[in-house]
Design a protein around this nucleic acid. Structure first.
Lengths: 200, 200, 200, 200
DNA sequence: TATGAATGAGCCTTCATTCAT
DNA sequence: CATGAATGAAGGCTCATTCAT
């Protein structure tokens, strides 16, 4: 769903999408490294090899890139979460799968996650960001639903389920700051260890 | 240690410090709300009632304010952490006290924490920020020390202590995003609940 | 005399001229509505259905369109004025016919006239616009000649012929701002009423 | 009513207003010469001696300058027109006085008038320009009122009063294109000659 | 012919900071 | 101390134009 009119002819369309993707990735990387505001269109130009003006073929604005980054992060994650929660596996399994998918997704979207965390003030304040906020909320609800069912069937134990949810969100959202592919522990192992904090 | 030459006569000095403090607090609030870059000196001017030029009596630069915010956050926290860890109480008690102090401090410095989280890229990149990075690291080391001693004496149980530390850092660093004074749970209660995740 | 190499084969040529004409008309309309500078090639592209690049098949530049608009306005007008003044009718009749032709031409070229009036600064300043300025001047001379002959033979009365000429130019040049085909008065009626201001 | 917060202290205020006035005058001159769009803030900076950024102390935007130019043109004119029409002199005298004041005002505001004429498309299209449109309209109503009363008391004769009004508007609005202070005829003389076109 | 990609210059505006008063 | 004026460097974005396909 790019914003700067993509071509309609399929052949061109493919190349267009590919380049837009490259732009978004470059943006995610730079935004993560130096911050959204501190990254100039000139920086993006240098990183992509496109002249400054050319960037606007693939995005309608700098902020549009930021939204695209968040969408790329949230959309597949939300989809996976829904798929997992739709299974008729027991809640304990739901949680484990969810955490695994989540951490794997983060591991492959570290810059996206860093940007998403950094730009909280933008996401929170502007009306334009409502869709993003809603996706985030939806994901958290799915997660909470899993915890609730786990609590109900006794497979998980919480002193306070609300605090458990917030703890989980905190620890996972913090992961992009240290998690690296090929690190000492795989994303799945980490997921399991953390899952065990709440599963009997 | 303000940066824009404070007066030496004690009477004036007090007033000076008071106003500088007001400036830093206003900055923390605005930076948290809109982001550091998106907050202009003009915004600070409006918030403090000082004209743009006047602000520079109390700080040497905008970035200096950012550093001051981080110092105000980290210095007392580090001091408390040191004091707690210096006690000869058992590690379990250390952890509990540390978490309580930590969350209480956060509760009274929510904007500071939000800013500190948001400006990671600045803190991480610039040489000028080494002192801040070092304080953060020192705090984490103290925390890890407590966990290590708890693991050693068997009062705490970890599948993987490194992951436990990271989980702890994540959940607490995430707290400023939802924790509010007067909320359903006090900072101390939260500290206890979370502490119990790791204590036998 | 289009500027972007028209085809030589007559069949193609006709189509070419037709499309160029469509482009000029669209430009006149848009320039009149939003101003020359505020109209982008993109706007013209949208209005004509031609992609941005395609426009340059029919004009060598945006400014060339502006010149074409002025030429389309002035060339036929000048021709008619010459034809009328070449008649051996009495001056009074010359004036009446001239005014009628003039207002009729304006009525069918309202956007052209608006643009012509609006872009005075361009027309006046740039050397490239000399031809246009000369045509305008020639028309005014013809008009003044008619007034002079009318004054000479007593059929017209002026306190100050120069001021009468300027008054006439002013009222007619202002017409495109309110004159509309099918309005309360026809162009010819208006011409007659105004003519009578000067004719005994 | 400047738009970029003027100082409140009276001493500073005077200097501020003076400089803002200088800026507006420079803008009127440049806009008239090269057009509004073709005049850059850099041009204004050069003309005023103020650095580009400094201009924004005296205006909130380039468009604000355009509005100020129109206001400077219309406000005093409207005031004079009202004063004249409020007199209990006969309509014939009203018309004569009005034309004189009008042409004198134009003579001392030639660039303003040229800009006002040139930027018709802006004035007409944007909602922000409603106040300006209304002032223009009000002036025209006053003028038409005078003609109506002149027609009623027989001191003026029109084949078609509407067309007379439009003729008058046209000839006077065209004046800035040729009228120059110290020219062959004074503004008052011109006013009288034109007035006589309609007065018996 | 026609298209869409690409360029690069230029524009308006913002802003941290300095300084005379 | 405090103010408001002033600076000058960016910054995001637009746009006329060119060109390979």
């Amino acid at each position: 769903m790019p914003s700067a009119s993509p071509p309609t002819r399929p052949a061109l369309r493919a190349r267009y999408e590919e380049r837009r993707q490259g732009l978004i990735d470059a943006a995610a990387k730079l935004f993560a490294e130096r911050g959204y505001e501190q990254t100039s269109i000139g920086d993006l130009s240098e990183a992509t090899g496109l002249a400054a003006g050319g960037i606007y073929h693939y995005t309608s604005s700098k902020e549009d890139l930021l939204i695209a980054i968040c969408d790329e992060l949230l959309d597949p994650l939300l989809e996976q979460a829904r798929a997992i929660a739709a299974t008729d596996a027991p809640p304990e399994r739901h949680l484990r799968e969810l955490l695994r998918a989540w951490l794997l997704h983060i591991e492959s979207h570290i810059p996206h996650m860093l940007v998403f965390g950094q730009e909280r003030h933008t996401i929170e304040r502007e009306p334009r960001w409502r869709a993003v906020r809603r996706k985030r909320k939806r994901f958290e609800e799915i997660l909470d639903g899993v915890l609730a069912r786990g609590e109900a069937d006794g497979s998980m134990a919480f002193e306070d389920r609300g605090l458990a949810l917030l703890a989980l969100l905190g620890m996972v959202n913090y992961a992009p700051q240290w998690l690296r592919p090929g690190g000492r522990r795989s994303a799945e192992e980490i997921a399991d260890v953390w899952c065990n904090l709440f599963v009997r």
